[in-house]
Computed example of a mutant assay.
Amino acid sequence: MQFDDDAQLDPSQVEDVRASGPQSGGGGGRRGGGMPGGCALPIGGKGGGCLLLILGVAALFLFGLVPTPFSGEEGGQQGGGRQPSAPPPPSPSGNLAERCKTGADADQSEDCRIVGTVNSIQSYWRQEFAERGKKAYTPAKTVLFSQAVRTGCGVADSAVGPFYCPADRKVYLDLSFFDTLQRDFGAEGGPFAQAYVIAHEYGHHVQNLLGTMNRLSRDNRPGAGSASVRLELQADCYAGVWAHNAVKTGFYDEPFSQTDIDQALSAAAAVGDDSIQRRSRGRVTPDAFTHGTSEQRERWFSTGYDSGDPKRCDTFTGGI
């Protein structure tokens, strides 16, 4: 995963509130800590869980979508009412606008790599919307936070994992999640695993812009064939579509390697409903699925990556 050294980054697409407390972010009333209500999608669509805390919760969600305000409950289980942690001390990393200017910076810094990845993803979708004659693509910021953040969906802490909040149209990301994904869930890790997660979250933003997310508001019940699973798998497919087309955005100097793609597939497999349930419960319960199995998540990412065509990401027609 190598950036074009001369690519010009736009750090304004990433907001860094790590030196702030939960008062920073997208706004919204404080509803307590714990898991987001109505968001049961591991890695990508609806809520998210991390750390060993997640391993002890019946319904696990890694990164995803948060379509309703945080309520302290997830999948019918009490999230524990845990209050967000105190804000961390000011980050010594400095201002993103000062540090993240070119692709060369993205190759040297994790923060700048996040900026470059977000820039590329949004560049692709802006082009795609224009070429397909859809309404103009509306950019969404990624908010980097640590421990706790206030969002349009309420106050969230790091246990939620990466998520997209439709209320304020922002992606929220605590970078410590990627260590958890590798350490506690057995993912291979690596820069492209990060890129996959971010691209998945922006897949939810695309769904929000296109109105696809309304399917979930009509029926948010879990289950192997549920709307939530189909929404999550489509976001995985959209992540693959971006990966196929990423070099065309001008931010990367060559297509992604098989090693890069393997990192994404490893992350997708690690957060399949079946894999997470085995870790947390010791058994698989399809009626509680919200994101799809490991095999489904890998397959739909690969569908997007192999085709490069978002029209191939129709997870709402037929079987999945």
Results as ranks from 00 to 15, higher is better:
residue 1 M to A: 04
residue 2 Q to H: 13
residue 2 Q to T: 14
residue 4 D to E: 11
residue 6 D to M: 10
residue 7 A to Y: 00
residue 8 Q to G: 10
residue 9 L to E: 02
residue 12 S to E: 11
residue 14 V to S: 10
residue 16 D to Q: 06
residue 18 R to S: 08
residue 19 A to G: 09
residue 22 P to K: 07
residue 22 P to C: 11
residue 27 G to A: 08
residue 27 G to E: 06
residue 29 G to W: 04
residue 31 R to S: 15
residue 32 G to Q: 07
residue 36 P to K: 07
residue 36 P to H: 14
residue 36 P to F: 15
residue 36 P to C: 14
residue 38 G to P: 12
residue 39 C to T: 14
residue 40 A to K: 13
residue 44 G to H: 03
residue 50 C to R: 14
residue 51 L to P: 10
residue 51 L to A: 15
residue 57 V to Y: 15
residue 58 A to M: 12
residue 59 A to H: 06
residue 60 L to T: 10
residue 63 F to V: 10
residue 63 F to D: 08
residue 63 F to L: 07
residue 64 G to I: 08
residue 71 S to M: 03
residue 75 G to V: 04
residue 76 G to N: 04
residue 77 Q to H: 07
residue 77 Q to V: 12
residue 82 R to E: 09
residue 83 Q to N: 05
residue 84 P to H: 03
residue 86 A to E: 12
residue 86 A to S: 13
residue 89 P to E: 14
residue 89 P to N: 07
residue 93 S to V: 11
residue 97 A to Q: 14
residue 99 R to Y: 13
residue 102 T to R: 01
residue 102 T to M: 05
residue 106 A to M: 07
residue 111 D to P: 09
residue 112 C to R: 02
residue 114 I to K: 04
residue 116 G to Q: 06
residue 119 N to S: 06
residue 120 S to Y: 03
residue 125 W to L: 13
residue 127 Q to Y: 02
residue 129 F to E: 03
residue 131 E to T: 12
residue 147 Q to I: 07
residue 148 A to T: 04
residue 148 A to H: 09
residue 150 R to T: 14
residue 150 R to V: 00
residue 156 A to K: 10
residue 157 D to V: 04
residue 158 S to W: 15
residue 160 V to P: 02
residue 166 P to R: 00
residue 168 D to R: 05
residue 169 R to Y: 11
residue 171 V to T: 05
residue 173 L to A: 10
residue 173 L to R: 06
residue 177 F to T: 07
residue 182 Q to E: 13
residue 182 Q to D: 09
residue 184 D to I: 10
residue 185 F to H: 11
residue 187 A to W: 03
residue 187 A to T: 09
residue 202 Y to L: 01
residue 205 H to R: 09
residue 207 Q to M: 09
residue 208 N to D: 11
residue 217 S to C: 02
residue 218 R to D: 15
residue 220 N to I: 15
residue 220 N to Q: 14
residue 220 N to K: 13
residue 223 G to P: 07
residue 227 A to M: 14
residue 233 L to R: 02
residue 238 Y to K: 02
residue 238 Y to P: 01
residue 241 V to K: 06
residue 243 A to L: 05
residue 247 V to L: 05
residue 248 K to Q: 14
residue 248 K to T: 12
residue 253 D to W: 01
residue 253 D to T: 13
residue 255 P to Y: 00
residue 256 F to C: 12
residue 257 S to E: 08
residue 258 Q to C: 02
residue 258 Q to R: 13
residue 263 Q to N: 03
residue 264 A to D: 03
residue 267 A to C: 00
residue 268 A to L: 02
residue 268 A to K: 01
residue 272 G to C: 06
residue 275 S to V: 01
residue 276 I to R: 04
residue 278 R to C: 07
residue 280 S to N: 12
residue 281 R to L: 05
residue 281 R to G: 00
residue 282 G to F: 14
residue 286 P to M: 03
residue 291 H to G: 09
residue 294 S to M: 09
residue 300 W to L: 09
residue 301 F to D: 06
residue 303 T to S: 08
residue 307 S to P: 02
residue 309 D to R: 10
residue 309 D to M: 06
residue 313 C to Q: 05
residue 313 C to D: 04
residue 313 C to K: 02
residue 317 T to N: 11
residue 317 T to P: 05
